[in-house]
Design a protein around this nucleic acid. Structure first.
Lengths: 325, 325
DNA sequence: GGAGATTATGCACATATGTGCATGAAATTG
DNA sequence: CAATTTCATGCACATATGTGCATAATCTCC
């Protein structure tokens, strides 16, 4: 690349980005085909002759992140700025998109990663950039399947996608999340396939989990639990759920009939895992999140601004960002 | 525009310019139609959330411009950087495009501007940005028409275009550049239309002129002069031509049969005009340009780098920019 | 200096983008 | 609070842009 080339790139860039000529007009001036103009522009961006900067831009609310770490006692918080007009679907996508890069960075190439299901996790994993070089990561499904019909937001699907993005290996849990009874559960747990997963759980470094609440439960929606079941759980003190494990306000597992039917990672195992990151959104998860953190299950959080402020309010801190309406 | 709007613009800009998502993908994330994404991006650029800068970019060679002013004694020089690969057509367009803005800036809204013909002037005027508010400029055709058949690069056409760009009034010279004989010329000069032009010449503030050379003469090309005529002119010491006026190495008008047939601005008039800017390109005009400047006709110059270096070499200065080939 | 490899270019196509128009929502005025 | 205006949005179309492929130009190595 000589000086004349750089002049040409600069001229092309000026005509395009400063003077707003279209590529055809530029082609006429500098005497090349329009395709070449397109390529010259790409090159000018590439080598930094053209720099595009976005001013004052902060996709995350670092202030709130710090507050969450400080007051809630998190190791890691990712609070994604959202905008008032966004509906729930778009908020989830925005959170997923912005958090994807940060989460990808905390997953080492040789790690054992577990993942559960969830709508926000779905978007997070979906928007993750594929790793340039395949990793030796092992991606483990943390909980059994909700039903035979696999939805996009189920753990199996998400673990599969995550493995593809990381270029790693996907380990599936061939079992239902709730076995019919304790004996059946033991049969599943004793199966070689599940056994291998349980051994991987011992080496778990990063876990991505959703936070379920009874008011809006995937289990009820999928007719694994009836609304009455949910109500009973509520009465027993359940405030949230992670990987099929129901916990109370202190983050301790509640003694329910389902407790001994779950095929999936145990809360103890999650408590012993360093990076357990809850990925969620919205204000209605505040209580459950606080409980899960209190119980030592969750150490990191990915959430939207509104949800984060709800948590801070629940903690008695005033919102750090005035809500715009 | 509230803070949430700015967040949204910033996010959109990041997704588009930093992450290279297409507008559809962005629309899906932020929850608006793709059209709106297009509009958001335009707005983000508009209000400066996105800034696009072109580094190290210098469309003009200021060093050579200074040298021309210093050694040739110009008031004003615009030397446009060109690139080795460009053919003559593209060099002209580049010179025209880059010089257009600078020239436009030196034409006040209320001025009397004269223009002759020429290929480079054609491109210069063509690429000039139309003035936002119409001016009261008067644009005067400095010389008669070469023939009845009007070409794009003729004075009449260029003056017309320039008037349109400035939003001013166009004054045409209803006469041939060379009358048949001195009596005919006097008839043209006596006509009220030409008289009005002559009065405007007295008020001329800016003149854009081409520089003709006999080796590559528009008059020969248009069969107004024969190659033999051109050769005779050469023998009489003609090195160049401006507005149909042939001048020698000192920039003095040469006594030729054509001298008294020209219907157009006189050299004296041009000498008395402050901003007489020659607009041209290429190395073969060096001698003629030097002569015109020496004679006090031309005070400003628009030219390409190669042409500028040829002038400096002709002046005995070494080229200020090593030619890349 | 010539043969092969590498790079640059243009064409043609598929995709991405900008924009006039119609519609609906929000703001403003009486 | 209704009527009117203004503004924002989506649709559909025309235009602008990026890119695989074939070809031409240039470089490299012997």
């Amino acid at each position: 690349m000589n000086e004349a080339d750089i002049d040409l790139l600069s001229l092309t860039a000026k005509l395009y980005y400063q003077d707003n000529l279209d590529q055809n007009a530029i082609a006429n001036i500098i005497g090349v085909s329009r395709s070449t103009v397109s390529r010259l522009l790409a090159r000018a961006r590439d080598i930094g002759i053209v720099t595009i900067s976005i001013n004052h831009y902060a996709p995350r609310n670092l202030e709130v992140e710090e507050a969450l770490c400080k007051y809630l006692g998190l190791q890691r918080a990712i609070v994604v700025r959202t905008f008032a007009e966004g509906n729930i679907l778009n908020i989830r996508r925005t959170v997923g998109y912005i958090a994807a890069q940060a989460i990808s960075e905390i997953i080492p190439n040789d790690s054992v990663v577990g993942t559960a299901g969830g709508r926000t996790i779905y978007d997070l994993v979906r928007y993750m950039q594929p790793r340039k070089t395949p990793s030796s990561a092992m991606v483990v499904q943390l909980m059994g399947n909700i039903g035979p019909r696999v939805g996009q937001i189920d753990a199996i699907e998400i673990a599969h996608t995550l493995a593809a993005k990381l270029g790693g290996v996907f380990y599936t849990m061939s079992a239902p999340v709730f076995a019919h009874d304790i004996q059946t559960r033991d049969l599943f747990l004793a199966s070689p396939q599940v056994q291998e997963l349980l051994r991987l759980f011992d080496r778990l470094q990063v876990a991505l989990v959703g936070i379920g609440v009874l008011e809006n439960s995937a289990f009820v929606e999928r007719q694994i639990l009836s609304p009455e079941n949910a109500h009973e759980l509520r009465l027993k003190g359940v405030v949230g759920e992670i990987c099929g494990r129901f916990f109370d306000i202190d983050g301790s597992e509640v003694d329910t009939p389902y407790r001994d039917q779950v095929v999936g990672v145990s809360l103890e195992r999650l408590i012993a895992t360093k990076e357990v990151i809850a990925v969620t959104n919205g204000a209605d998860r505040a209580e459950a999140i606080c409980a899960a953190v209190r119980g030592g299950i969750v150490k990191g959080l990915v959430i939207d601004e509104t949800g984060a402020n709800a948590i801070l309010e629940a903690l008695g801190q005033k919102s750090l960002r005035t809500e715009l309406h």
